[in-house]
Design a binder for these strands. Structure first.
Lengths: 234, 234
DNA sequence: TAGAAAAACTGATGCGAATCAGTTAATTTT
DNA sequence: AAAATTAACTGATTCGCATCAGTTTTTCTA
């Protein structure tokens, strides 16, 4: 078969969910090094984990919780990704010649984050090629997702973008078509690159069309097939 | 000084210009391996180097020329980056679990591209940590650039986006405020996420305002300062 | 539990930018 | 060098979506 099947990669989705383990690729001494040079902190809902532009001092391993990774400049904010359990964040600051964080991170729910000393992390990358190969793989998965979002936000219109994000929530975060949204309508706006009012209007429209059901934060996806067609910009 | 100065990274710019060498980090045997498992091909202007969705078989090293790296879907096309001499392309397809190219590449000018067997490349990554560390660094530089473009295309309006791309051309590609544009107005549209007509209209507006001078493909930036202010969305 | 603050929602209005429908200029092609 | 094709340009029109200016509901706080 020559025609490639449509990739089942959720290219509109903005949520990482690596099952790719990196810790297991370290030997005992290396694991010890990580353990000794990292601390696990608990962040409350809404707290800022790190700020774009600050000097990068840590790699963040999200042990538990839900966070947003976003760009901010002036009054504008653009959410790059939502990340859940077992995500490794802050990797893009490993870049010779620049040691600033390229993005900010803040929490949506209470989150347990292990903060790993970036120098130690870099040292391990330089000494363990299996490990750094895995990190490359992780970086590339995240890049693929960003590309999908980039395409979605620049080429689709509101309907498609909102459908994208709703599907994403159900499939990747809650693994259920019924869920309680931990983000505000304004956050949904930042995620989809639309105004808060438009988010509300589109949600209402989806509700009127029987695609979803909403009661404030509680969302139910009623017609996933049609949402997927909308996402694909029909 | 606590207040971080505005990063001088050209965050709106879409052109890579790594001076980061990777080849030198290989030992003689490894260099030989690359040499034996790569060929250098010349692509004519406008030719397609690789297609998004195809199985990734090579890493591409752009020895000379100017290419676009872009996403395509349906009739839409989004240029991720322009790349010039010494860029390493195709790296994002190094990702366990997926071996498809995440983007297409085609040439704007005649280009000399060394095609390196991806299996060999992966093998070297797994055996030479200095090398893979450098690749991580290269990947992250490119990610930083994509973030900048992502922000530009989703948060700025036409004026800013066009200013971005013009400044980018002058600074990064031609290293001169006078240059002959190798891309069509439609390509500029794909780069800036705007319609061809809007590109033309904005160019005319910039010309009328004395910001630039144009004669079809020949462009002169007259007032870089003001262009930069426009880029910064004042 | 009342009061304050924030988030959710609604409708009217206006503008940025795409689309459409052309013309003119610049390249190719033969 | 003429014809054909492609790219550059122009103006009129349309519409998607942001913005503004509110009201209502929910959540936080005292």
């Amino acid at each position: 078969m020559n025609t490639p099947t449509e990739p089942r990669v959720n290219n509109h989705c903005s949520i990482f969910d690596f099952e790719q383990s990196w810790y297991d690729l370290l030997n005992d001494a290396e694991k010890k090094l990580i353990d000794e040079h990292s601390v696990s902190l608990t962040f409350k809902k809404g707290e800022t984990v790190c700020k774009q532009g600050a000097f990068a001092s840590h790699i963040y391993f999200l042990e538990e919780g839900l966070v947003k990774v976003y760009l901010e400049e002036r009054n504008n904010s653009l959410i790059l990704t939502l990340s859940t359990n077992h995500s490794l964040l802050g990797l893009p600051s490993i870049f010779e010649g620049n040691n600033k964080l390229p993005y900010s991170i803040s929490t949506y729910t209470e989150s347990k984050i292990r903060m790993i000393d970036i120098q130690i992390f870099k040292q391990l990358l330089k000494q363990n090629p299996e490990f750094s190969y895995r990190i490359i793989s992780i970086l590339n998965e995240s890049t693929a997702q960003i590309y999908g979002r980039f395409f979605s936000l620049t080429q689709k219109q509101l309907h498609g973008r909102l459908a994208d994000i709703l599907l994403c929530m159900a499939t990747r975060i809650f693994k259920n078509n019924t869920f309680e949204l931990p983000l505000s309508r304004a956050d949904l706006g930042d995620l989809t690159g639309m105004s808060t009012e438009s988010v509300i209007r589109m949600m209402k429209e989806f509700k009127d069309d029987g695609l979803i059901d909403t009661q404030c934060k509680n969302i139910v996806l009623l017609d996933v097939d049609r949402l997927e067609r909308i996402s694909q910009f029909g």
